[in-house]
Amino acid sequence: MATFISLVNFTDQGIRAVKDSPDRFQAFKALGQTLGIEVKAVYWTVGSYDLVLIVEGDEEAAISLLLKVGSLGNTRSQTLRGFSEQEMRKIIGNMP
């Protein structure tokens, strides 16, 4: 399973309905479950980003989920592929 860390900002539309943000997250989580994606963590933050999401699952399913959510217009995200220590050791071990 792949890990993805998304740094999320509200759009103008999303911030106008910020009170709905926890409900939107629950809908995101439910949709993710239908795709086999596990939401490991969510944090509402202050600073450069409004939310941080950590999800795990099949790469194509995770990207589909994030694209679907982005298409709703409430958020914009920057997503990073995360690697555990064990995954990184394997990657480094494959270096010539």
Rank of each mutant, 00 (worst) to 15 (best):
M1N: 07
A2G: 06
A2N: 13
F4C: 04
F4D: 06
I5Y: 02
S6L: 09
S6M: 12
V8W: 00
V8G: 05
V8F: 01
N9C: 12
N9G: 02
F10A: 04
F10R: 02
T11C: 00
T11P: 00
D12C: 04
D12S: 11
Q13L: 13
Q13Y: 02
G14F: 03
I15Q: 04
R16A: 14
A17E: 12
A17F: 06
K19T: 12
K19Q: 11
K19W: 06
D20N: 04
D20P: 04
S21E: 09
S21I: 11
S21Q: 06
S21W: 13
P22Q: 01
P22N: 01
R24G: 05
R24E: 03
R24L: 08
F25V: 14
F25Y: 14
Q26W: 10
Q26T: 10
A27K: 15
F28W: 12
F28Y: 09
K29C: 07
K29R: 12
A30H: 09
A30F: 11
A30T: 15
L31A: 14
Q33A: 14
Q33Y: 03
Q33I: 06
L35Y: 10
I37R: 02
V39E: 01
V39K: 04
K40H: 09
V42Y: 11
V42A: 06
Y43K: 08
T45H: 01
V46S: 08
V46L: 11
G47T: 02
G47I: 01
S48F: 06
S48A: 13
Y49C: 03
D50S: 11
D50R: 08
D50W: 12
D50Y: 11
L51P: 07
L51I: 14
V52P: 01
V52W: 03
L53D: 05
I54R: 09
I54V: 15
V55E: 10
E56H: 02
E56C: 14
G57T: 04
D58E: 06
D58S: 03
E59L: 15
E59A: 13
E59W: 15
E59Y: 13
A61K: 03
A61H: 01
A61Y: 05
A61G: 04
A61L: 08
I63F: 06
S64T: 12
L65S: 02
L65V: 04
L66D: 01
K68T: 15
V69G: 00
V69L: 04
S71T: 12
L72C: 08
N74A: 08
N74R: 01
N74W: 01
T75A: 02
T75K: 00
T75M: 03
R76F: 00
S77C: 02
S77D: 12
Q78C: 06
T79D: 05
L80F: 09
L80D: 07
R81M: 15
R81C: 13
R81G: 08
G82A: 10
G82T: 10
G82P: 10
G82C: 11
G82I: 14
F83R: 11
F83M: 12
S84Q: 11
S84H: 07
E85T: 07
E85P: 07
E85V: 14
Q86A: 13
Q86W: 11
E87W: 10
M88F: 13
K90L: 15
I92N: 05
I92V: 15
G93Q: 07
G93I: 07
G93T: 10
N94I: 04
M95S: 12
M95P: 04
P96L: 14
P96W: 05
